[in-house]
């Protein structure tokens, strides 16, 4: 009996280890080696794309809420790639997506959103690209995840499956 007991015991142990690792995968940690993290967000003023109303950034973000700032342009081809991911994300209730339309013609930008649906809560116009500079962006597209008026993650380049997954984790 002793001989049979040992293998079963071993197998049970390994199965438990497997299950725990499997569970552990679900709440995996996210490592972001970025100096930008936890920095306060810059303040700026901009007009909205649709209503042409002036908005002050101080009034835009509320405490204890997640925001995704997405810098985009209708002429930027990778922006089209990430659009599906943005739409997917916009279906989530606990994050608001704010678009910053970078160096674009209003007409084109509106057409772009009409054609592909708008994931944005509000779109701000950044005609000369200064707001993007304030944010420290390198180019389009680029996204910043905010919480409590602080940047908690920066995504350079188009969103993809991986970064979407990370964002969903963070806002959970």
């Amino acid at each position: 009996m002793k001989v049979k007991f040992f293998p079963i015991f071993l197998i049970i142990i390994f199965v438990i280890v497997f299950l725990i690792f499997y569970k552990g995968l679900q709440n995996s940690n996210i490592y972001t080696p970025n100096t930008l993290i936890k920095k306060n967000i810059p303040s700026f003023e901009a007009k909205t794309l649709r209503t042409n109303k002036k908005i002050d950034s101080k009034n835009l973000f509320k405490e204890n809420e997640f925001y995704l700032i997405n810098i985009w342009a209708s002429w930027c081809i990778p922006c089209r790639d990430e659009h599906d991911f943005l739409i997917k994300l916009s279906n989530q209730k606990n994050v608001k997506i704010i678009g910053i339309n970078y160096k674009d013609k209003n007409e084109n930008a509106k057409n772009f959103l009409k054609e592909l649906k708008s994931p944005y809560e509000v779109v701000l116009v950044d005609k000369d690209g200064t707001i993007a500079i304030e944010w420290g962006a390198y180019g389009v597209p680029e996204s910043f995840l905010l919480y409590n008026k602080k940047i908690i993650k920066k995504i350079i380049g188009p969103l993809n499956k991986k970064s979407l997954f990370e964002i969903e984790k963070l806002i959970k």
């Binding site: 995996s28 940690n29 996210i30 490592y31 499956k161 997954f165 990370e166």
Partner: peptide, 15 residues
């Protein structure tokens, strides 16, 4: 590699 641990070697977090 799975991102279950937090470290400089964690290249990817794809579950």
């Amino acid at each position: 590699r799975s991102g279950i641990l937090n470290s400089v070697h964690t290249f990817a977090n794809d579950p």
